[in-house]
Design a protein around this nucleic acid. Structure first.
Length: 900
DNA sequence: TTGTCATATCGAACTTTGATCCCT
DNA sequence: CAGGGATCTTTGTTCGATATGACA
């Protein structure tokens, strides 16, 4: 039988509780053994209970899965397993407990898990076992339950910092890829591969999705996807992908962008920034989940693409030259162009659906070898993060010395010998699954990279069109979210890169913003990061069109501005027109909509309408109607006061406990206070308030509150004509000058379960400010000098004490010390006088070293016992530099002192 | 199997206007 | 004796995010 020291987590009766109860019941029915066990367990638990709350918590964390306190009852012959004792999770190991308790020492056989007395008697054992229920630690129900531990504020902060750093790294990576897409050499090479009919795209005035289809198809059929890049430097990787017609998904996507740009189309490189979670421990659980159920993506059509029996794309039949490649491409385009663009588009969608079902069903069949699994002790997230950092560094290196790519590559290769990137790369290269694994992402097969091309022939105003060359999907922006979700990739940040800039276009691809909003970083920080990048991006998209000559430049710029503002409007509109969620929980923190039932205590709907729809019969209101309510006092803090005759819009019942010992009442003048007659809390909305209008200072008198002070929550709370002087001891000056003042209460400090006001300086009428400050400065100066004087006096006094003690000590030493060391030298004294064995000429010089004072004092013993040293000023010398003065007595005794 | 809902749990935030003793 | 500083002790309630289980 095993008993666990399990913290109470649920009030509900669980299976374990039932089992324990059953055990308890059973032990009652059992004889002495069960009772003995129970006693022992209780003793053990008593010791366990001594551990601090913290250690208890640790136990919860570390031991729940294995169950704590594996106390073994010796008489349970359930095989070898029952005799094994796991690592004790308690602070005090059983051994320690044993050493501390004689009683337990007597029961030490528990640890052995065997009792020779009992094991020798099998019949007896069998008899006992009939009545004992054995509970295994590793019962499925127990193992399934995860320990519940919330992340602390510190952990959250760290997670957010990591999240931000990761975001910046990914932004850097995106910019690097974007700049590689602008490489004229790569663009020219791509153009040289392109069949003549596709090159005509560059002259199309009204670009449409259909016009782009053959080009996308050509790209898709000419480049195959492999799991990872073979090059560390992205530009080299891109060149290599161009050469071999094979590359990582991001390289293929980048090549497509480069191709579009080569054709003078406005194109962006778009990427999901698959960043580590903003919340602590989320990724870990994801990993474990992934470990159990590796998923392959919806868009793993790349895998299909790899396995396509396409001769031109098979590695064995790698084209030997660009001309060969171009010819093959031409043939492919001929085949592809047989079908109409619309038909091919439909086919793609159909293909996608097929893959979806196929891949989903394969989910549990395939074991995908993931990078990082061979890392052993190092966490996958750590490796990924380091890798991203490596990439960012590489990006920096690339942008700063683009001309020395080869050198950089060499140096980076050397560097990579020691970097986790290389490890990962090796792992990736060893992979034989051929599954598209996005570099820097643990998610497999998710659509992480694609292009956006501006089609001025779409809509009336033109639009940015999603083009995924890796998966040959055109204008499939609505499908990205679902595809990413299918691959367990959170679509939190979708960023479009162009012209070394970046723009957040998540709204375009995310239909359910409320699901990702809480997983995104603080928007003000993110906006600040993107602001300069957005400008770069908007300046580049279309503005750098090589078609435009100088005369058209301004027109193009205007056009771009319109285009950008139109896109901003489009994204904004999308943000404001999100469909109503169907589940009620979504309304809890929805940025657009609200249900009345999910409002908090301090919220209210004002105005209550319009009703935008219904969810499970509950009316849905705009989130803008949700207003915060505060008490009158709380509004005062924000520099607002209640309008006259405003009644509280909500009254909260104060808890019974709080009411005890406190008597609440109405104000003397009968006004509505924040606390009502029955201890209720009256709440008001902002619309019931107006800017604070405090009585102004008159005749040098500061208007004070009922406590004779001024609450200075902010500058707004100061009565007109007054000023806050937040200096210590300044009240004394005002008092001295007989100027009216009020203590400035600036907040509360919570101590001993109660809060106490914190004061900082005073509030005085503005006209006295200068006088008081002047007097304060003088007073402080005076106080400072007084303090210095006191300090010096104190120092002198301490010196005097020190020296006196040294002299006394020396005197005692002279009188007794030698006698102790050489007792034979001490001559029996007469009249309490000591006759020294040393002569007066052999005067000793003792050095007293007092560390506390860091002073050296040279002392000369004197012969005359009752002599009192006199240090005349004539006999002293002073070293000006070191401020050391040597004072001498006429007897020859000298002393070094430091002048203060 | 998945989505929805209700409920339990727990970390974090909020709460809010002394008393007494001793030294100078 | 007045005034100022140090010390006492270390809450209890509520909110809201999230885990969990029931149920459709």
């Amino acid at each position: 039988m095993k008993t666990r020291n399990q913290p109470k987590r649920h009030r509900k009766s669980t299976g374990e509780d039932d089992m324990i109860e059953k055990c308890g019941h059973d032990t009652k029915t059992n004889g002495t053994l069960a009772n003995t066990s129970r006693e022992g367990v209780n003793k053990f638990l008593k010791y366990g209970a001594r551990s601090s709350r913290r250690s208890k918590r640790q136990n919860d964390d570390t031991c729940d899965n294995d169950s704590v306190n594996k106390v073994e009852v010796p008489a349970t012959p359930t095989g070898p397993n029952t005799t094994t004792t796991g690592p004790s999770c308690d602070n005090e190991s059983p051994q320690q407990v044993k050493s501390e308790s004689d009683d337990l020492a007597a029961d030490s056989y528990w640890e052995d898990g065997s009792n020779p007395n009992l094991t020798s008697d099998n019949d007896h054992l069998n008899q006992i076992n009939k009545g004992i229920t054995i509970e295994f630690d590793s019962s499925p129900a127990t193992a399934k339950r995860k320990p519940v531990r919330r992340a602390s504020a510190e952990e959250k902060e760290v997670a957010e910092l990591v999240h931000r750093a990761h975001l910046l790294c990914l932004l850097g990576r995106g910019r690097l890829i974007d700049s590689a897409c602008d490489d004229p050499l790569i663009q020219a090479s791509l153009l040289s591969l392109l069949p003549a009919n596709l090159v005509k795209l560059s002259t199309v005035t009204n670009l449409t999705v259909d016009a782009l289809t053959p080009l996308v198809h050509w790209l898709n059929s000419h480049f195959r996807v492999r799991s990872s890049s073979s090059e560390i430097l992205f530009r080299l990787g891109l060149a290599s992908a161009l050469e071999t017609h094979e590359g990582a998904p991001e390289e293929i996507a980048a090549l497509s962008v480069a191709m579009f740009r080569a054709l003078n189309l406005s194109a962006r490189f778009v990427s999901i920034l698959d960043v580590v979670s903003l919340k602590p421990n989320v990724d870990e659980s994801d990993d474990t989940l992934q470990g159990k159920k590796p998923r392959k993506g919806l868009f793993d059509s790349s895998t299909v693409m790899v396995t396509q029996p396409n001769e031109s794309s098979s590695p064995s039949s790698k084209p030997s030259s660009i001309i060969d490649m171009a010819n093959i491409a031409l043939n492919n385009i001929k085949n592809a162009s047989e079908a109409s663009p619309k038909a091919s588009r439909k086919r793609k969608v159909k293909k996608l659906d097929q893959i979806t079902s196929q891949e989903m069903s394969n989910d549990r069949k395939m074991d995908v070898c993931e990078p990082g699994t061979s890392e052993g002790s190092k966490r996958k997230g750590d490796i990924e993060f380091e890798m991203q950092m490596e990439m960012a560094l590489a990006a920096t290196a690339a942008t700063t010395s683009e001309h020395n790519i080869d050198n950089d590559a060499k140096s980076l290769n050397t560097l990579s010998d020691f970097s986790p990137f290389k490890k990962l790369k090796k792992v990736n290269c060893e992979e034989s699954t051929g599954v598209s694994t996005a570099v820097g992402s643990k998610k497999i097969g998710a659509p992480l990279y694609w292009a956006e091309v501006y089609c001025n022939g779409e809509n009336s105003t033109g639009k940015w069109v999603h083009i995924d060359a890796v998966n040959a999907i055109i204008d499939g922006e609505q499908r990205v979210e679902a595809a990413a979700a299918a691959c367990k990739t959170f679509l939190r940040y979708v960023v479009a890169f162009a012209g070394q800039g970046a723009k957040d276009v998540t709204r375009r691809y995310c239909a359910k913003w409320y699901k990702i909003a809480s997983h995104r970083v603080d928007s003000s920080w993110w906006d600040a990061v993107l602001r300069p990048l957005k400008d770069l991006e908007s300046g580049a998209t279309g503005g750098t069109s090589r078609l435009s000559d100088n005369s058209n430049a301004s027109a193009v710029r205007d056009n771009n501005n319109t285009r950008n503002s139109l896109e901003d409007m489009e994204l904004e509109t999308k943000a404001l027109t999100e469909p109503l969620p169907t589940n009620q929980q979504a309304y809890r923190s929805h940025h657009l909509y609200a249900l009345e039932r999910w409002l908090t205590k301090y919220q209210i709907l004002h105005p209550k309408g319009p009703i935008l729809g219904f969810c499970s019969g509950h009316p849905v209101y705009p989130r803008a109607c949700v207003q915060m309510l505060h008490t009158k006092e709380r509004w005062l803090r924000e520099g607002l006061q209640l309008k006259v005759n405003e009644l509280p819009v909500k009254v909260l019942k104060r808890s019974v406990k709080l009411n005890k010992g406190k008597s609440y009442g109405v104000d003397e003048d009968g006004e509505n206070d924040c606390v009502g007659p029955g201890g209720d809390i009256n709440l008001f909305g902002k619309w019931q308030t107006e800017p604070l209008c405090l009585p102004p200072a008159k005749n040098g008198i500061v208007p004070k509150n009922e406590r004779g002070q001024v609450d200075v929550w902010s500058e707004k709370c100061l009565p007109p004509g007054t000023v806050h002087l937040g200096f210590p001891r300044i009240f004394a000056i005002a008092k001295k000058l007989e100027i009216d003042y009020a203590p400035a209460m600036v907040g509360f400090e919570f101590r001993n379960g109660r809060s106490f006001p914190l004061y900082n300086g005073i509030v005085v009428c503005t006209e006295f400010k200068d006088i008081i400050l002047e007097a304060y400065a003088e007073e402080e100066e005076r106080r400072g000098s007084e303090e210095r004087r006191k300090h010096e006096a104190q120092a002198l006094s301490r010196w005097y004490q020190l020296l006196s003690s040294i002299v006394t000590r020396q005197r005692l030493n002279n009188r007794y010390a030698e006698g102790i060391e050489h007792p034979s030298n001490i001559i029996p004294k007469t009249n309490d006088k000591v006759i020294h064995t040393s002569t007066s000429k052999e005067s000793m010089s003792h050095q007293a070293n007092d560390e506390a004072c860091q002073q050296e004092v040279l002392l000369k013993p004197y012969e005359e016992e009752d002599h009192e040293h006199v240090f005349s000023t004539n006999d002293s010398t002073c070293d000006v530099e070191s401020s050391i003065r040597i004072k001498r007595c006429h007897c020859g005794f000298s002393i070094e002192v430091e002048e203060l």
